[in-house]
C-alpha cells in the first residue's frame, strides 16, 4: 500500500507542474496585466510607473523565466505577496480556505445522510411507487441548477416572511450557532446534486447485492431481513458510495465556488474570482495549486480508503 501511495504522490508532481504552467501562461497571455490595473486604480498610471512596477514584478522578463523564478520561490516555501492587496498570499488562502472546506464537508455529510438511506429504501421498494418517486426526484435534483436553488432560498423566505440571511460572515470559531445558520443553506443546495447521485448509485449497488449469492444464502439461513440489510447489504454498499463521493469532489468544489457567490461567503472560490479580475498573478497561481492539491489528495484518499474497506482490492 505504501509504495502505491508514494507512486501516486510522485505522479501528482508532473500533473501539478503542467497545470501551473497552463495557468501561468494563460493569465499572462490574457489582456490586461497586474501593473496596469493596479496603477489605473490609483490614478497614477503613467507609462513610466507601469514600466517600473512591471520591472519590480519581473513582468518584463520572458514568461519561461518568470515561471522559473516562481517555481524557485515556491520550492523555497516563499509564496509571495498578493499583487493587488500586498498581503501574504498563503495567509490569504489560510483566511479564505476554511469557508470552502466547511461547505464541502457539510454538504458531503448532508448528501450522505440523506442519499444513502433513501437509496437503500428505493432499492428495497424497487418497482414500487416509492422507488419511482425517489428516482424521479433524483433526476430532478440533477437538473436543477444550484445557483437558482440558492437564489430562490434567499428570495422566497425574504418575500414570504421578511427573513434575510445574515450578511456578515461569522467564522466557526467565533460563534458556532451563528456560523452553522449561515452555512446550512448553501451546503444543503450543494448537497442536492450530490445526494441525487448518491441515491442513484446506492440504489443500483444495493439492488446488485440483493440479487447476490451471499444475500440469498443469508436469507436461506433464516436471518432476519434487518440483519441482512445491516450486515450484508449496507456494509458492502459503503465502498461504492465512498468512491462516488471521492470521484464527484471536483464537481462538488465547483458547486461550492458558485454558492460562495450566491450567499456572499468569503471562500477560496470567491478570492480566486476576485484575484482573476485584478490579474493578481501570485494569488491566482497559489489558489489554483491549492484547489488542484485538494482534488488530487481527495482522489488518493478515496482510492486508499477503497482498499482499506474492501480487502479484495490490492494495488500493486
Amino acid at each position: 500500500m505504501l509504495p502505491y501511495v508514494f507512486r501516486r504522490l510522485v505522479l501528482m508532481v508532473p500533473a501539478l507542474l503542467l497545470l501551473t504552467v497552463v495557468v501561468f501562461v494563460l493569465i499572462r497571455v490574457a489582456p490586461g496585466n497586474a501593473a496596469q490595473l493596479q496603477l489605473a486604480e490609483s490614478g497614477a498610471g503613467s507609462q513610466q510607473a507601469i514600466k517600473e512596477l512591471e520591472h519590480q514584478w519581473h513582468l518584463d522578463r520572458p514568461i519561461p523565466v518568470q515561471y522559473g523564478l516562481w517555481l524557485r520561490d515556491i520550492a523555497g516555501g516563499r509564496f509571495g505577496r498578493s499583487l493587488w492587496t500586498g498581503s501574504n498570499t498563503l495567509g490569504q488562502v489560510g483566511r479564505y480556505l476554511p469557508v470552502t472546506v466547511e461547505l464541502a464537508v457539510l454538504s458531503v455529510l448532508l448528501a450522505t445522510l440523506v442519499g444513502v438511506p433513501v437509496g437503500v429504501a428505493a432499492a428495497y421498494r424497487r418497482g414500487g411507487l416509492t422507488d419511482h418517486g425517489l428516482r424521479f426526484a433524483s433526476v430532478v435534483g440533477l437538473a436543477v441548477p444550484g445557483f437558482w436553488l440558492g437564489t430562490m432560498l434567499i428570495v422566497l423566505p425574504s418575500v414570504w416572511w421578511g427573513y434575510a440571511p445574515p450578511l456578515v460572515y461569522t467564522p466557526l470559531w467565533k460563534d458556532v450557532v451563528e456560523n452553522v445558520k449561515q452555512m446550512v443553506l448553501p451546503s444543503a443546495v450543494i448537497a442536492v446534486y450530490l445526494a441525487a447521485t448518491t441515491i442513484r448509485v446506492t440504489r443500483s449497488v444495493v439492488l446488485d447485492f440483493l440479487r447476490s449469492d451471499f444475500v440469498r444464502t443469508a436469507r436461506a439461513k433464516g436471518l432476519a431481513g434487518r440483519t441482512i440489510a445491516g450486515r450484508h447489504v449496507m456494509r458492502n454498499a459503503g465502498v461504492p458510495v465512498l468512491t462516488l463521493i471521492g470521484a464527484q469532489f471536483g464537481i462538488l468544489l465547483g458547486g461550492v465556488v458558485v454558492q460562495e457567490q450566491v450567499f456572499a461567503l468569503p471562500g477560496l472560490g470567491r478570492l480566486t474570482l476576485e484575484s482573476i479580475v485584478h490579474r493578481d498573478y501570485t494569488q491566482v497561481q497559489l489558489n489554483v495549486l491549492v484547489f488542484a492539491l485538494m482534488v488530487m489528495l481527495v482522489n488518493l484518499l478515496t482510492d486508499v480508503a477503497y482498499a482499506v474497506f474492501d480487502p479484495r482490492i490490492r494495488y500493486s
Binding site: P14, A15, L16, L18, L19, V22, G250, I251, L253, G254, G255, V257, V258, V288, F291, A292, V295, M296
Partner: peptide, 8 residues
C-alpha cells in the same frame, strides 16, 4: 492536470 481542477 485538467481533471485535478474543478470543471466549473
Amino acid at each position: 492536470a485538467v481533471t485535478a481542477f474543478p470543471v466549473l
